[in-house]
Simulated scan of single mutants.
Amino acid sequence: MPRRVAISSYTLSFVAGVDEAGRGCLAGPVYAAAVILDAGHGIRGLDDSKQLTALQRENLFDLIQRRAVACAIARAEVEEIERLNILHASMLAMQRAVEALSPAARHCLIDGNRLPPALPCSAEAVVEGDAIHSPIMAASILAKVARDREMQRLDAEFPGYGFAKHKGYGTSEHLAALRRQGPSSIHRMGFAPCAQPDLFAGGNA
């Protein structure tokens, strides 16, 4: 079973924190980020992205990118989520983020209890890591903000679902829009209620 770990055996500047955003949504891609920070990064206010306001996340997003030793954001598309399932697509997005780091990480701390299968360095899973390690906190913020921005963009492309507001999560507003309009081409049809076409009045590709 993965456990909480200390990283004193590694030079902090080569340890990447990795986290994902959007795994539980009904629509849109899943995002991941990887961040390497040095000991003197001086970024105040880092926390699990879910504990921050949207404004705090936006402000930290730019600061993290300026002060990180390295950072990268990646995604897995809806088609990949449908083909691989959401767990494996999330792992794929994390792997892509780690592979995009320059300089490369020597070790990764992955938020959660699973590891991507083909990382280019050693790694360990840390349950609730986004509340423990600052590089994971930073990664959670980058992934969340990047995905929220994409869902705001998709709101204009797929009007009527409220993506800019709920970001694809299964809110009552989103479920009502699904019943009214049917699923769009960016809905994850392997997810309930997206996979229940009898509930819908029609589709909206």
Rank of each mutant, 00 (worst) to 15 (best):
3 R>H: 14
4 R>F: 05
4 R>T: 09
5 V>I: 15
7 I>F: 01
7 I>S: 07
8 S>A: 13
14 F>Q: 15
15 V>G: 02
18 V>P: 00
19 D>C: 03
20 E>G: 04
20 E>A: 08
23 R>V: 02
24 G>D: 05
25 C>N: 08
29 P>T: 04
31 Y>F: 14
32 A>R: 00
32 A>G: 11
33 A>D: 03
35 V>D: 02
35 V>K: 02
36 I>Y: 07
40 G>K: 15
41 H>R: 05
42 G>Q: 08
42 G>F: 15
45 G>D: 10
48 D>I: 09
48 D>W: 11
48 D>C: 03
48 D>E: 07
51 Q>M: 13
51 Q>R: 15
52 L>A: 06
52 L>Q: 01
54 A>L: 05
54 A>M: 05
55 L>N: 10
55 L>V: 14
56 Q>G: 02
57 R>A: 12
57 R>P: 00
59 N>D: 15
59 N>Q: 15
62 D>L: 13
68 A>M: 05
68 A>C: 11
70 A>Y: 00
71 C>P: 13
72 A>G: 03
74 A>Q: 08
76 A>Q: 07
76 A>N: 08
78 V>D: 01
78 V>Q: 01
78 V>L: 10
82 E>Y: 00
83 R>D: 12
84 L>Y: 10
84 L>V: 11
85 N>H: 10
91 M>H: 12
91 M>N: 11
92 L>W: 01
94 M>R: 11
95 Q>D: 14
96 R>G: 09
97 A>Y: 06
98 V>Q: 03
101 L>D: 03
102 S>P: 09
107 H>W: 10
107 H>N: 04
108 C>K: 00
108 C>F: 07
110 I>V: 07
113 N>R: 06
115 L>K: 10
116 P>S: 09
116 P>L: 05
117 P>H: 14
117 P>Q: 11
118 A>H: 14
123 A>Y: 11
123 A>G: 06
125 A>T: 04
125 A>W: 00
127 V>I: 14
128 E>C: 12
128 E>A: 15
129 G>K: 02
133 H>Y: 03
133 H>L: 04
135 P>H: 03
136 I>L: 02
140 S>F: 12
141 I>Y: 15
142 L>P: 02
142 L>Q: 04
142 L>N: 02
145 V>A: 05
147 R>E: 11
149 R>D: 13
149 R>Y: 00
151 M>E: 06
152 Q>H: 08
152 Q>R: 12
154 L>Q: 11
154 L>K: 08
157 E>A: 15
160 G>A: 08
162 G>L: 05
164 A>E: 11
166 H>F: 04
168 G>R: 00
168 G>C: 04
173 E>I: 12
173 E>F: 01
176 A>L: 13
179 R>W: 08
181 Q>Y: 13
184 S>N: 00
186 I>W: 05
190 G>N: 14
194 C>A: 12
194 C>G: 09
195 A>Y: 12
197 P>H: 07
199 L>T: 06
199 L>I: 07
200 F>Y: 11
200 F>P: 12
203 G>M: 09
204 N>F: 11
205 A>K: 14
